[in-house]
């Protein structure tokens, strides 16, 4: 049975997940109100990180580093918000936000895959361009009709704890949750996934097997931009209904950390994002209830320090896709 096989290969992860779940429900049994609020908050903060990390997963699994996620997100938030403000249509806003993400993704894709620009430099350029343009064209006083509403998913939202945490949010949050599982499926179970992984690991093998490496990379990196754009629209139109200069405030970089923390795998990245979200949740809970008095800044630093610790500890075990960062030149 392949399922048993899968279980035995992933027993550490399955075990950890089970423990976490048991712990969460124990917490829920003790104080359902606090438990729901803290986990909801964790997920609320994790949504853009998850979406950002998925952008990274797709890019790096195809062999393209994306450190421009921060900029893509910011432009998505900006373009989405102002399009919604101009048309007074939230749907238009979300679409424009996603499209702007695609545009940024296309820049990264074409400049690096076709133009052979260094991938890291391209990402830095995206970030700098995004900051410049979104602050220069920022206009105050614009409002959107209303942020994307929260809604209850039938049946699922009735599940204790998990229901109110994951199935009573807005559409982008729900989408983020779904896309993790969809992406996991696509990456490991489908033709697209097999080819994408091959292209990111060893492009010349894919090339000789008749796969168009350039086209697949272009498509993946460009399309992943949708998720970055949506992460942005989540910030400006679902989590809030406003745009601020520099609104992404480092979430794109944090997503990058989560991507690595999650070992380039969608589900683990989701777990990592939730963990970071929960740490923040815990920090603010401790602060609000005046229980302990550790400086807030320290807890805020935790994700970054943990990332460094994990990377240092996991040296050699966590491995990036083999061809990440390298341009593919046919016939080389």
């Amino acid at each position: 049975m392949p399922d048993m096989e899968w279980l035995s290969r992933n027993k550490i992860w399955v075990g950890t997940a089970a423990l976490v779940l048991i712990g969460a429900y124990a917490f829920y049994a003790v104080n359902s109100n606090i438990a729901v609020s803290m986990f909801s908050y964790a997920w609320f903060l994790a949504v853009p990180l998850v979406l950002g990390a998925m952008v990274g997963v797709i890019g790096e699994r195809s062999g393209v580093v994306n450190i421009g996620i921060e900029g893509q997100m910011l432009v998505g938030a900006f373009a989405g918000f102002f399009a919604a403000a101009a048309t007074q249509s939230i749907v238009v806003g979300v679409i424009v936000g996603a499209l702007s993400g695609i545009a940024m993704g296309a820049f990264l894709a074409f400049s690096t895959v076709v133009g052979q620009l260094d991938q890291i430099i391209a990402g830095v350029v995206i970030n700098i361009v995004a900051t410049g343009i979104t602050s220069f064209y920022f206009e105050s006083g614009k409002t959107i009709p209303r942020g994307l509403p929260n809604f209850d998913v039938p049946l699922l939202s009735k599940i204790p704890l998990i229901g109110p945490v994951f199935f009573s949010d807005g559409p982008i949050a729900l989408f983020a949750l779904i896309i993790v599982f969809v992406l996991h499926f696509l990456l490991f179970k489908t033709r697209w996934g097999l080819r994408t992984r091959a292209v990111g690991e060893y492009p010349s093998a894919a090339d000789t097997a008749g796969i168009n490496v350039i086209a697949l990379r272009l498509f993946n990196v460009t399309a992943a931009g949708i998720l970055a754009g949506l992460a942005g629209t989540y910030l400006s139109m679902e989590a809030t209904s406003t745009f601020e200069r520099g609104m992404s405030s480092g979430r794109g970089f944090l997503a990058l950390a989560i991507l690595i923390f999650g070992a380039w795998r969608p589900m683990r990245a989701l777990a990592a994002a939730l963990f970071f979200g929960f740490m923040q949740s815990l920090a603010s809970q401790l602060q609000a209830s005046d229980v302990v008095n550790i400086p807030q800044q320290f807890i805020n630093l935790l994700p970054y320090v943990l990332t460094l610790v994990v990377l240092a500890a996991a040296a050699g075990r966590v491995r990036a896709p083999g061809a990440v960062g390298q341009p593919f030149v046919k016939g080389d």
């Binding site: 990058l256 460094l308 990377l311």
Partner: peptide, 27 residues
Amino acid sequence: LLKTTRGVHEVISTIMLNSIAVGLIDW
């Protein structure tokens, strides 16, 4: 050091260290 001893890519570690510096100094 993270790069030479543990192979951590400097782009990731320096991004993290930037954020850590902001927090520490704010404190």
